[in-house]
Amino acid sequence: MTNIQYLAPATLDEAVRAFAAAEGAARILAGGTDLLVQMQSGFAKPGMIVDVKKIPELMAIEETAGGGFIVGAAVSGATLERHPTFGKIWPGALEALNLIGSTQVQGRASFGGNLCNGSPAADSVPGLVAAGATVTIQGPNGRRELAVEDVPAGPGKTNLAPGEIAVSFTFPAHPAHSGDAYLRMIPRTEMDIAVVGCGVFLTMDGETCTAARVALGAVAPTVRRVPDAEAALIGSHLDDAALETAAAACRAACNPIDDKRGTIAYRTSVAGVLLKRTVAIAAERAAQA
């Protein structure tokens, strides 16, 4: 084994400097539930590991005005679960993060790692996209902010530039009568990879849906937002016709792989079914919020 370095800087500036200076030989370590598996198999052979969990900004959870939140990119699912209000306001985003792996994996897995690992089936990503979350990124050229849906670039690829680190996720203010939800379909009941994942956020005015965001995972090379499904829901009473139009839009957005977990036809069909089920949960939550 060649020389490898482990750094755990206490500031973001130090982390960015070391990460950028290593020019691609370094890997960021958050919960390690992807990175260590890749190192064990020899798929990743980093010359430097930059552990970001000593940087306060990456580990903080801050509630902002009107039910908004800023969640550090390396906060674990277990930590977020223990937060007194996050899961009450954003239950869909929380359930998406905590569908990841086992209790042990949830003790470490983060939104930042799930997004930056770049899996098309990453469970928390459709939840983040549906919530309308943005990610703050810091790199050698300073800070920028991207919508979460603009980060994935293909299997294992993101639009982060070399040396850039995901710092935190910003959840917008949560309008009254809104709710989010995430559902996934897996062949087992636990510990499996999504065949389809669906995140939905809705705002209701009485019977009428006034805002909607829909995101699908595992049915295309990246997690994707489905604007046609959103358009079908907005202005409707979430009646059967509107739901069927939205489901058809989800099926049309699918460009999935064919594998042992699900054929193309199966994944496509399930995308429509999950849309309807996820909308029902989000609507129920919106009615109570």
Binding site: Y6, A8, L29, G31, G32, T33, L36, V37, Q40, I49, D51, K53, S76, A78, T79, T103, Q104, V105, G107, R108
Partner: peptide
């Protein structure tokens, strides 16, 4: 106090 897998954690952590 949080349950984790020791195989997915570095000793240095």
């Amino acid at each position: 106090g949080t349950l984790v897998c020791a195989c997915l954690m570095l000793a240095a952590e």
